[in-house]
Nucleic acid binder design. Structure first.
Lengths: 218, 218
DNA sequence: GATTGTGAAGAGGTTCACAGCG
DNA sequence: CGCTGTGAACCTCTTCACAATC
């Protein structure tokens, strides 16, 4: 636990991870899991960097934030690195997720296999519309919003996915915060206002597309 | 067209836009379109900044890259700013898009209204499976991959969306590059290798989720 | 008086380069 | 000899602060 080095002048007791680093850890993990499947046991920073199209010193520096994982002359142990990164980002447990809004996007998410494969368990699905509540969405019944808070609490859900129209998104987010949800994945095209302590990650496909055409136009 | 200002000492004939800026333009646009709908005619950098949860100087500096849009004491004209940003990112025209892979994700994208609303026109849809080709996906027939290149060329499609399983994604990307597609929106969980001149934007929901839980775990 | 546009200062992130280890 | 871990240099992005403008 005691990890102060006397040579550095910088004080940084709290393990503050640069946000640029955290956003790359997932990509490391993704490539490492592929490597593991291929039977690779060891990989150098240079190799891993090439897979991700970044520099090898970037990889080394990123991993350096969390301790010493590599062996000079050999590289990094794939299996061990996977375990370590999973622990760092919190993928070492299963997360209970609820989803609100069973339109096109919502339905696709319910059937999306990548979630389950990454340790996210969709534990409940909600929709406002009477036409949908009671029906099945995959293995789950679609519940009415009136049951939202009790179900979230009973199932100990900590993550919410919003896939409702933009006009309804803020209300849903408010309800989520109220029910104690700490992380929101938002597919609606609005910037959500949430209380401190709640983290929102937005996914806006139109924005992604615009990234693309910006490069194409320039 | 001639737009050199004599006062700046910096030489920068090529309009090089910091990549951090380009990624925010879309968000400015999104908020501005909402403001327009609400009837707002003018907005200050401070107001706009608040909507996006960034600083007002950030907004001013970002917009400053493209010329003078604002009026001191008044702010920015919403309508005019929308037009300008659209032109900058290339949203002033309609883009022809094709989609490969009609699974869960693909189907959701076909029905997703945000695309059309942002000037993206899905002009063709493809899938490998005999079970799907010939069937309808929305207003379009699902075409077999054998028709990919001719159709892309005939319809002047410049953007491709990949929503096939990870194992097939690289092949599809190769085919897209071959057919002359310049921008790829990739939903598969792999890092694609593409020739120079082709831009890829990846959307990986598991990665987004991991961003979320990283913050929750720390 | 309010608000822009912009140099200059400050943070933050990336690359370099090399000592030290296996 | 190959490769990691890491200070130092470098670069990019963000914030500050204020003259110029409406």
């Amino acid at each position: 636990m005691k990890k102060k080095q006397k040579k550095t002048g910088k004080r940084r007791d709290k393990a503050e991870v640069p946000k640029a680093v955290s956003s790359r850890l997932s990509f490391y993990l993704r490539e490492l899991e592929i490597l593991k499947m291929l039977g690779t046991e060891t990989i150098s920073s240079q190799h891993l960097a090439a897979l991700l199209d970044i520099s090898s010193s970037q990889v080394r520096k990123d991993l350096g934030h969390f301790g010493q994982f590599g062996f000079p002359g050999l590289g990094y142990g794939v299996e061990r690195l996977i375990t370590s990164i999973k622990k760092i980002i919190g993928r070492d447990k299963v997360w209970q997720v609820c989803l609100v809004g069973c339109g096109n996007v919502g339905s696709a998410l319910i059937h999306y296999k990548g979630f389950a494969a990454s340790g996210f368990h969709i534990a409940a699905v909600f929709d406002n519309s009477h036409k949908k509540t009671g029906k099945k969405a995959g293995r789950l019944s679609i519940l009415p919003m009136s049951e939202f808070e009790p179900v979230v609490k009973k199932k100990r859900i900590t993550i919410g996915v919003i896939s409702v129209p933009a006009s309804a998104a803020q209300d849903v987010a408010d309800g989520m915060a109220m029910a104690g949800i700490k992380g929101i994945l938002n597919f609606a095209r609005v910037t959500l206002k949430v209380p401190a302590g709640v983290k929102v990650v937005g996914v806006d496909l139109a924005v992604q597309m615009e990234q693309l055409i910006f490069h194409l136009s320039n």
